[in-house]
Simulated scan of single mutants.
Amino acid sequence: MIVLADGARVMFTGDSITDCHRRETDNPLGYGYPLLVAGQWGLRQPDRAPVWLNSGISGDTLAGLGSRWQADVLDARPDVVSILIGVNDTGYRFSFGHPEVTADSFRTGYRQLLEPLAGVRLVLIEPFLLPVKEEQWAWRADLDAKIQVVRELSREFGATLVAADGMFAELAAGNSPEHWLSDGVHPTPAGHQALAEAWLRQVR
């Protein structure tokens, strides 16, 4: 459980799921789960106002995130860093023929992101997938290995884990996958709401 103090700097970072059109509009938080987290927090805790930041960039892989880590994350001097990354490392392999990002290399690269964050509270969000196309079932084993890495690193670094993959699987069991993740990867409004609520359950 993470306690957010008034003025705490909270950085969301990752790929398009976190970006959610922030760079194409005048809303620096985008229109996805970071905005919903900030809105719900402001409603519930008007006397404590964290500083909400978003440095997600659409299309990023773990390597892409790492290449801008210093400028976009560390230089912002956050008190809390929330990371959601990994599905593109899987998807690009199967959709575009990119080289495989093994679990070991994913672990090494992810650990390099976390090591400079001593004293910073961490929220690690599992990458997630609900196959809506037949070919996406082939992604599952590859992504599962990366999800396991995120779980391992959350324990190693004392991070808070948002178990998003299992959450979406459970939600989709009572509904269509497309209700939550429109293309199997990107959340719908309902999916972003579910992700925001899962995130908020880990803070107070």
Rank of each mutant, 00 (worst) to 15 (best):
G56H: 02
I85S: 03
D104K: 00
G97F: 04
Q202P: 03
V150G: 02
V37N: 03
H186R: 05
C20L: 00
L200Q: 07
G66A: 08
S95A: 12
K146E: 00
V120P: 01
P131A: 15
V132Q: 11
R201H: 06
L143M: 02
L53H: 07
H21F: 09
G32E: 07
G109Q: 03
V37R: 02
V101C: 10
E152L: 09
A164T: 02
Q202A: 14
Q70K: 13
F128R: 08
R22S: 11
A76F: 02
D47P: 02
D165T: 10
T13K: 02
A5P: 03
D15A: 07
D60H: 09
P187Q: 15
Q202Y: 04
G42A: 14
Q112S: 05
W199D: 02
V37M: 12
Q193M: 14
G184T: 07
L62S: 01
E152R: 02
E170K: 15
L65N: 13
R9L: 14
I85M: 09
E197R: 08
R155A: 12
K146T: 00
F128N: 03
D75R: 14
V162Q: 03
E170S: 08
E115H: 02
G191K: 01
V150R: 01
R48W: 12
F12C: 09
R44V: 14
P177C: 13
A5M: 10
A118R: 10
K146L: 02
N88G: 04
P28E: 00
P189E: 13
G191C: 10
R44N: 14
L29H: 09
A194S: 11
A63G: 12
I2T: 04
S182P: 00
G119E: 15
P177Y: 15
S55C: 15
I125G: 04
V203F: 07
W180D: 09
V101A: 06
A8G: 05
T18H: 02
A145C: 01
D144K: 00
T160L: 05
Q112M: 07
G42H: 13
R23H: 11
D26E: 15
T18Q: 04
E156V: 11
